[in-house]
Nucleic acid binder design. Structure first.
Lengths: 145, 145
DNA sequence: GCTTGTTGGTTACAAAAACAACTATTACCA
DNA sequence: TGGTAATAGTTGTTTTTGTAACCAACAAGC
């Protein structure tokens, strides 16, 4: 029962998007957290390296819109656990090339398979066409302008 | 340039939803944060009380899927700032009725207007039909099952 | 009445995120 | 050159969040 007021919170995009995002993240989080003890920023860094190969921290930050301090700490933990190898660049000694170690590659391949399967279960809530349309619209909303 | 690998991070729903949600939240956050120093959980509690009137903390948590500790702390801060009034129930002395003070009501009315206007600017990225469809799908995704 | 379990809400402590300041290296340019 | 600014990344400090333990009030069964 609402007051004389007609604002619909459930239809307010920032709120609704957030609820959907949170709900959608839960299932996958459970895997990367419970199985590998990773944080959100860590699986993201791992995936960027898995997909793109050798990158610098800044490149990862730019591609994934992750702040550099988060990338720095994620890389630190991943390197401590020997999932990522760091190598200081010779041309520009400020930057460091990052890539997955064989162990990191294995974790990535596993999580990638989980992600693909999870994506499938999420999509059972929608038709294939709906998913296509949804992703297009989310892409537009995610774009900064 | 990707490796031989075909996983598309930008098309992974948890990731994409998160990016869209974060981007969509920014503009509104700027207002409730800069103008009133509120946190996300705080504007949510405020809006629930603005829309529904008198509620208990548990009811707010249930409606908005907010954990009770977040509600508790949000209410505490809102009450400290005299935006929310708390009254111990006589029938059941465990629970407390919450409602907006006149000052809280003013803040709510202001933010509500901002939210409505902001929703409009967000929607310029999409057609009216797209928005309708999008909200339906997000609703399905947000639903826990 | 007791006593066992449940509910509403708070608090304490640990984990994580945000923000700002800092070091080191390279680029620009007068 | 030498000095200033920009870039890559790290570290320190403060906020916020998450998790679990907790207290007080009520409910139900005996």
């Amino acid at each position: 029962m609402t007051k004389s007021d007609d604002f619909d919170l459930q239809a307010f995009l920032p709120y609704l998007l957030n609820q959907a995002a949170e709900e959608a993240s839960l299932g996958f989080q459970k895997v990367y957290k419970d199985r590998y003890g990773l944080l959100r920023s860590e699986w993201r860094v791992l995936f960027h390296l898995g997909i793109f190969g050798r990158l610098t921290a800044t490149e990862i930050g730019a591609k994934g819109k992750v702040h550099k301090t988060k990338v720095s700490r994620a890389v630190q933990r991943l390197a401590d656990r020997r999932l990522v190898a760091r190598a200081r660049s010779e041309e520009d000694r400020r930057l460091e090339w990052l890539e997955l170690t064989p162990a990191g590659e294995k974790v990535y391949q596993d999580l990638r398979a989980v992600a693909q399967e999870y994506e499938g279960t999420l999509q059972t809530k929608l038709s294939a066409e709906e998913v296509r349309v949804l992703k297009g619209m989310l892409g537009k909303l995610a774009r900064r302008d």
